[in-house]
Design a protein around this nucleic acid. Structure first.
Length: 575
RNA sequence: CGGGGCGUAGCGCAGUCUGGUAGCGCGCCUGCUUUGGGAGCAGGAUGCCGGAGGUUCGAGUCCUCUCGCCCCGACCA
């Protein structure tokens, strides 16, 4: 391929809309162009990369017995009514009508059609397990797209669905997919990928893991234990706060004029934040007012709280709603309130310590000597607190590290969440119909591409791993009109391509600086420079993207040396 | 959905307060010179100033409405 005819011009300056590294290089290097918020076209250079990523994914899915299929993007309402998700998913799913007034939707995940296929094509336990997968477009009307390809509305995803006769079989397969994912990310050149325990969100089901690229650019927060390897998304991470029992003191009302926040109250009374219990109020569409009692030094984790409360919308409560329940904003506690007026959620954190400060439900007063068990009676403590940097690991007690991560893949054990309502059954060897046990597994292709840039770049552009590089070799020819320069470049281009090597030749009559800058933006691993100078020195100059080392290679040795270099680079990425 | 910012040439921006024939840099086209980290000179093309209403003799600029994009948060396989 010649640069002079390559579609996509590089940009010298950073477009205003880009702030994230990968987004900046994706635009400057002419990888993508935005069509609308969260909707992008891929230009040739990016499409070449995603094609390679997809090939790696295919190979690894096929290795574990996957069968590639292709399901539609547009589906009828009826199919999604079967699982109930037509109603449980909100505005994230795009719905519309066709000319006959039928309700249609754009697929954002494909459990329903996958189940539809398998329930009619697979009938016997003898055929199980099976796994089908596809690499296909998804549309999710995200409330906020961001960061170039990191969070988009339309994207390509590999999604896989497995079907089993037992939980044990699912678990065994789940770990195979887990291994396949590790191989995929390794082969794609990602280094800092970790799997973390995760929330299941709209997918439902039981166990799930997310594969996260650890990077400050990530949207998710992870808690990682450097000691024992405990790893979890903040949404599900938990900790065991140490118990600090004290002799219970009597409950007493004290005046705390104008002291409303935990900050103010704690310093006014001279106690640490961890010796206070604060009230946080929400309104849940199903449960009404929710009163969360949590230690003053902790934050309520809404994802965890949602799980405790069950399905429905959750939002912070207004002051009027709090007052209606008899609580006084700024001075609230459940003590002495009619608990039938709200749903009380007591976080575990307030049960491991005694003698807390909490609100007196009276303007200007707090209670001291508050002891949950004694003063509230029987309460079932829940875990709704966010884990913090340095909190003890729930497994080994060592302090946890907090990091950011980009979710590039996830795997779920779904159980019978879809097979049961949708009648996806098989005949077992005892002659009985049983629902299949399911798993599902996703990888975002475009996000993976952007993640590689986040992890592998320098000031000048991406540094592509050879496995997914748009081309393997970049030829820069400086002053091509000079004796031998243009001819040599053309010959190298011809010979390397004939040998099956992917070559991008900058055949423009641009100055060295321009060619090098563009080559850096394209991030191609092997760079060959042909110029008057290199010819005088006996050949072409070889260098690796991201390295300062330079070598002169005689023209006749270029092909074998390129082959050798590619092999060496590929070997580094073997799982 | 809440908060903030921005829409002027392909890209980056000035001009808007204080209304008077739309500018700069880069890129693009032509020619010459140049060719190892984003060259020089000369000439040239490019704008529904996001859109619609309004005020005015006159609107990129003032007023009203509207659409879009980005960032933070909420939200989120």
């Amino acid at each position: 391929m010649r640069v002079s005819h390559l579609v996509g011009k590089t940009l010298r300056e950073t477009p205003r809309d880009a702030t994230l590294t990968s987004h900046i290089f994706l635009l400057r290097g002419a990888y993508v162009r935005q069509v609308a918020s969260g909707i992008y076209s891929l230009l040739p250079i990016a499409r070449r990369i995603t094609a390679k990523i997809e090939r790696i994914i295919r190979e690894e899915m096929d290795r574990i017995g996957g069968q590639e299929i292709l399901m539609p993007v547009v589906m009828p309402r009826e199919l999604w009514e079967e699982s109930g998700r037509y109603y449980s998913i909100g505005d994230e799913m795009v719905r519309f009508k066709d000319r006959s007034d039928n309700d249609l939707l754009l697929g954002m995940t494909h459990e329903e059609p996958a189940v539809q296929i398998v329930r009619s094509e697979v009938e016997s336990y003898k055929q199980l397990p099976v796994m089908v997968y596809q690499i296909q477009t998804k549309f999710r009307d995200e409330p906020r797209a961001r960061g170039g390809l990191i969070r988009v509305r339309e994207f390509t995803m590999k999604d896989a669905y497995s079907f089993h006769t037992s939980q044990e079989d699912l678990e065994e397969y789940y770990s195979k997919v887990h291994e396949a994912y590790v191989r995929i990310f390794k082969r794609a050149g990602l280094r800092r990928v970790v799997d973390v325990s995760a929330d299941t969100g709209i997918m439902g089901g039981g166990v799930s893991h997310e594969f996260m690229l650890v990077t400050p650019a990530g949207e998710d927060t992870l808690l990682l234990c450097p000691h024992c390897g405990y790893r979890a998304n903040k949404e599900v991470a938990y900790t065991n706060l140490p118990e600090e029992p004290e002799e219970p003191k009597p409950l007493e009302k004290v005046a705390t004029p104008e002291q409303k926040t935990i900050e103010e109250v704690a310093s006014f009374l001279g106690v640490p934040h961890s010796k206070t219990a604060k009230a946080v109020f929400f309104v849940h569409s199903d449960k009404g007012l929710v009163f969360v009692l949590i230690r003053g030094d902790l934050e309520v984790n809404e994802t965890k709280l949602r799980k405790v409360l069950g399905p429905g919308e959750l939002r912070p409560a207004h002051d009027e709603e709090i007052e209606e329940a008899g609580a006084v904003p700024g001075y609230a506690s459940p003590v002495g309130l009619d608990t039938s007026k709200f749903t009380l959620v007591v976080d575990r954190s307030v049960t491991v310590v005694n003698n807390l400060v909490t609100g007196a439900n009276e303007e200007g007063y707090h209670l001291v000597g508050f002891n949950v068990e004694r003063d509230l009676g029987e309460v079932e403590p829940a875990d709704v607190a966010s884990v913090r940097q340095g909190d003890p690991c729930p497994l080994c007690g060592q302090p946890l590290n907090m990091e950011r991560g980009i979710e590039i893949g996830n795997i779920f054990q779904l159980g019978t969440k879809y097979s049961e309502p949708m009648g996806c059954t098989y005949l077992d060897n005892d002659g009985k119909k049983k629902p299949m046990i399911m798993g599902c597994y996703g990888i975002g292709v475009g996000r993976l591409l952007a993640s590689v840039i986040e992890e592998s770049h320098d000031d000048y552009g991406p540094i592509w791993p050879i496995s997914i590089a748009p081309w393997q070799v970049q030829i820069c020819a400086i002053d091509q009109k000079k004796e031998g320069v243009g001819d040599t470049a053309a010959r190298l281009h011809r010979e390397l391509e004939a040998a099956g090597i992917e070559v991008l030749w900058d055949d423009r009559n641009e100055k060295a600086g321009v060619q090098f800058a563009d080559a850096d933006l394209r991030g191609i691993p092997i760079r060959l420079v042909v110029s008057k100078k290199t010819l005088k020195n006996g050949g072409v100059e070889f260098s690796l993207r991201g390295s300062k080392d330079r070598e002169i290679w005689p023209i006749d040795e270029v092909l074998p040396k390129v082959r050798q270099t590619i092999e060496k680079l590929e070997a580094e990425l073997l799982p």
